[in-house]
Write a protein that binds this DNA or RNA. Structure first.
Length: 761
DNA sequence: TTTTACTTCGTTTTT
DNA sequence: CGAAGTAAAA
């Protein structure tokens, strides 16, 4: 009896396939972490691979920790030698050693979103850009997107040509990189793309790591962006022992740069790749899986797979519609109360999932009034809280004065009466002498007409220097305590904030974390602590065994599971979001659908979908109809008090509802491509037929369904002016179809179907 | 320099 | 509606 006997056929295949590229398509709850950890154990135990030759990359610290724990339990010894880390901490480790080759100081700091914003704001001021017209956020986003695609400022500038707006973005991007370098700082995206840059420009360094990592695995591969793809490609290039695990159906992070093509095109990049699908689900009941499959099958361009399980049927998935969002919250909280009251489950088994953070409020109110313990996941990250960042900025300044953003943050915390004009003078001086802001403060007496502000500046510098002299003999907790006392932080908080108590508790918590850090790492330094802190997130802190109801967004729920899941706000325009419903193409809608799929597959036993006919959004009342995702579920699969208007379930009816997810051997080995659409008829047409049907059902909706043209993609058509051409694309727009035609004479045109008056020929 | 009244603007988020 | 940020007033 070996540890591999407990795996199913596909998992075992994945474990034993150690040489060459491997794509593991792992459906929700299909035991992918299990397969991955066993695979690593197999490499060490059976293949005699040295643990330090293995690299396992994840996205979150939590996933990394879990992976290490589980490998530890399987292997026993040597597991601590395996390099298990997130993308970012992997790159951080590499850059700490070699970034001097790119002209940076190896002691760089990491800037988060807030710090980035401060930098951008400053640049905009200098460039005379009004942040009301172009917000900082837009610059941050543009820069981040460029970096995700490995486009540096120079290349960006080359592509802007004469586009004035984009040129402005290019200028800001360039300046931003310069400021970052001057501040000796990297942002999160830099961590990845600077590592790629390092590898590209220093083949001997790359070779060093290629020779170190003989076997590489990447988890959540569907979430990788181009830079991460390239990083992995470079590392794996030599030995090609690359195992990527992911589920294209759970790709929900396109908006932050994830490129779904990385997983869809894996076989093109690695033609010799072996592909294994994990479809047996160990988490949910067949009822839940049927619903999940019914929804996700409406996406196209996915790797076809269908989850199944051997679990007992369980309860039906419920759907309830309410008049108001209050009633909805009432019902859900009542249901939680009832289920936990019966003793069947604990509060910690229940999770309420929603699309937007704002929806948490109503649930919080009801839970408070019922006295039910709960936690809200997400919102503001612990390390992003103002009071925490203040203390961290002090620590950063004490650690090294290079970080201008940190120094400027605390120069008036607490209020020291150093005004904007004084700061501007110091800034000018620093710029002139090409030194950091803090160094300029230290020699402030050289600055002309600084006036009596000099005493205030001196006091600040003396304070920081005194902390520096204590770093040697104080431990981290004591240092923080000393800072808090010397700056009277409590008084400062109480002066302007009524939640001073909460904030002070957070700071205490930070002190505890610092002390704990020191206990775990015997070589703990201030720098190492700041580094650790820079790369942790909120979801990392969610405990597995909870006794509290969890409230979170659908995004945060990925990777988690609960016995009772409530998906609230299942309404068109909320989920799927208004933006995705009105988008040009349906890729955004498909991403929302994947999000629905993620939500549904979080449920182990009970799933309840709810929605409200009316709710207040941005202060005004809005009326929504039932989410199309609910309407995509066949009635037979839903426990509903009234029938739900249906949408596009043709494909489902064709195969019959009797093919259930619990059937271990699906009849006819799953017809891979369902013959639902008639040949030559574009996919979009199906969606529109569905839309027409909804438009018919919903009462008094002023929705004017566009009339479907009688031609489709690939058809030959003629236009009165342009002559004959071929239809390249057909897209639904607000009240008409957009047709892209390549005319034999006139070339490619995009036009509205009603105006184009195209004739099929 | 700090407080106060007013405007603006609203997905999702890890690191 | 409510947070966050900004311009004007004290």
């Amino acid at each position: 009896m070996s540890i591999y006997d407990t795996l199913n056929q596909e998992q075992r295949e994945a474990v034993f396939h150690t040489e060459g590229p491997l794509l593991l398509l792992a459906g929700a709850g299909s035991g992918k972490t299990r397969a991955l950890t066993h695979r690593i154990a197999y490499l060490i135990q059976e293949m005699g691979v040295n643990p330090w030759n293995i690299l396992a990359i994840t996205f979150t610290n939590k996933a990394a920790e879990e992976m290490r724990d589980r490998v530890d339990r399987l292997v026993g010894f040597g597991a601590e030698q395996i390099w298990v880390a997130t993308f970012h901490s992997t790159c951080l480790r590499i850059l700490r050693r070699h970034i001097d080759l790119l002209g940076y100081d190896n002691h760089f700091t990491i800037y988060d979103r807030d710090d980035q914003k401060t930098v951008i704001k400053d640049i905009c001021k200098r460039f005379g850009i009004d942040n009301k017209q172009v917000k900082e956020q837009e610059f941050i986003h543009a820069i981040s997107t460029a970096k995700d695609r490995l486009i540096g400022p120079v290349e960006y500038q080359m592509n802007v040509r004469y586009d004035f707006t984009r040129k402005k973005f290019g200028d800001v991007y360039q300046e931003y990189q310069e400021v970052m370098k001057k501040n000796n700082a990297l942002d999160f995206d830099d961590l990845i793309c600077k590592t790629v840059e390092l590898f590209r420009s220093n083949p001997e360094v790359l070779l060093n790591y290629q020779e170190r990592f003989h076997y590489i695995s990447v988890d959540e591969y569907q979430d990788t962006n181009h830079a991460q793809f390239e990083l992995v490609r470079l590392l794996a290039q030599r030995r090609r022992n690359l195992c990527v695990v992911g589920d294209d159906d759970q790709s929900i992070y396109k908006f932050r740069g994830a490129d779904i093509r990385n997983i869809l095109d894996f076989e093109k990049v690695y033609p010799e790749a072996k592909v294994i699908k994990l479809e047996q689900n160990y988490r949910s009941t067949p009822n839940v899986l049927d619903v999940a499959n019914a929804v996700i099958r409406n996406n196209r361009g996915r790797k076809e797979k269908a989850l199944w399980t051997r679990k007992e049927e369980g309860e039906s998935v419920r759907f309830r519609q309410f008049d108001s969002a209050y009633d909805e919250a009432d019902y859900i909280v009542g249901d939680i109360q009832e289920r936990t009251g019966r003793g069947g489950c604990k509060y910690g088994d229940c999770a309420v999932l929603y699309r937007t953070n704002a929806q948490s409020r109503l649930f919080e109110e009801r839970l408070v009034s019922e006295g039910i313990p709960y936690d809200v996941v997400g919102g503001v990250n612990f390390y992003s809280r103002k009071e925490i960042k203040d203390v961290l900025a002090y620590l950063k300044t004490i650690d090294n004065g290079q970080d201008d953003v940190a120094v400027k943050r605390i120069i008036n915390i607490p209020k020291r009466g150093i005004g904007a004009s004084t700061i501007a003078k110091v800034e000018d001086y620093a710029q002139m002498r090409d030194i950091s802001f803090y160094d300029a403060l230290r020699e402030a007496d050289n600055i002309m007409d600084i006036g009596k502000a000099i005493t205030k500046i001196d006091a600040f510098v003396t304070l920081i220097q005194s902390f520096r002299s204590k770093v040697e003999f104080l431990n981290l907790g004591e240092l923080i305590q000393d800072v808090l006392e010397k700056i009277n932080f409590r008084d400062y908080l109480e002066d302007f904030d009524e939640d001073a108590q909460d904030r002070m508790e957070n700071v205490e918590e930070l002190k505890n974390k610092a002390a704990a850090f020191q206990e775990v790492h015997d070589d703990a330094t201030l720098s190492l602590f700041l580094e650790e802190v820079a790369l942790v997130s909120d979801i990392d802190q969610v405990e597995g065994v909870g006794s509290r109801v969890l409230l979170m967004t659908l995004h945060s729920a990925k990777g988690l599971e609960f016995s009772n899941v409530y998906m609230a706000g299942m309404e068109d325009d909320l989920f799927p979001s208004y933006q995705s419903l009105n988008a040009e193409d349906d890729s955004a809608l498909e991403e929302e659908r994947r999000l629905a799929y993620v939500g549904i597959t979080r449920a182990k036993e009970n799933l309840t979908l709810t929605c409200a006919r009316s709710r207040r959004i941005h202060g005004e009342m809005q009326y929504h109809q039932v989410s199309r995702f609910v309407r995509e579920i066949p009635d037979a699969l839903l426990d509903s008090t009234e029938p739900v208007p249906k949408i596009r379930q043709v494909a489902w009816e064709d195969e019959g509802v009797e093919r259930r997810a619990y059937d271990p051997r699906p009849k006819a080995k799953l017809p891979a491509k369902k013959p639902s659409a008639k040949p030559n008829k574009p996919f979009i047409a199906q969606g529109i037929e569905g839309l027409n049907r909804i438009a018919g059902v919903s009462k008094g909706m002023p929705y004017q369904a566009p009339v479907m043209p009688d031609y489709g993609v690939g058809d030959r058509v003629s236009h009165t002016k342009y002559g004959q051409g071929t239809v390249l694309a057909l897209q639904k727009d607000v009240r008409d179809y957009k047709v892209t035609v390549h005319f034999d004479q006139a070339g490619q045109k995009i036009m509205f179907a009603t105006f184009a008056k195209l004739k099929k020929c």
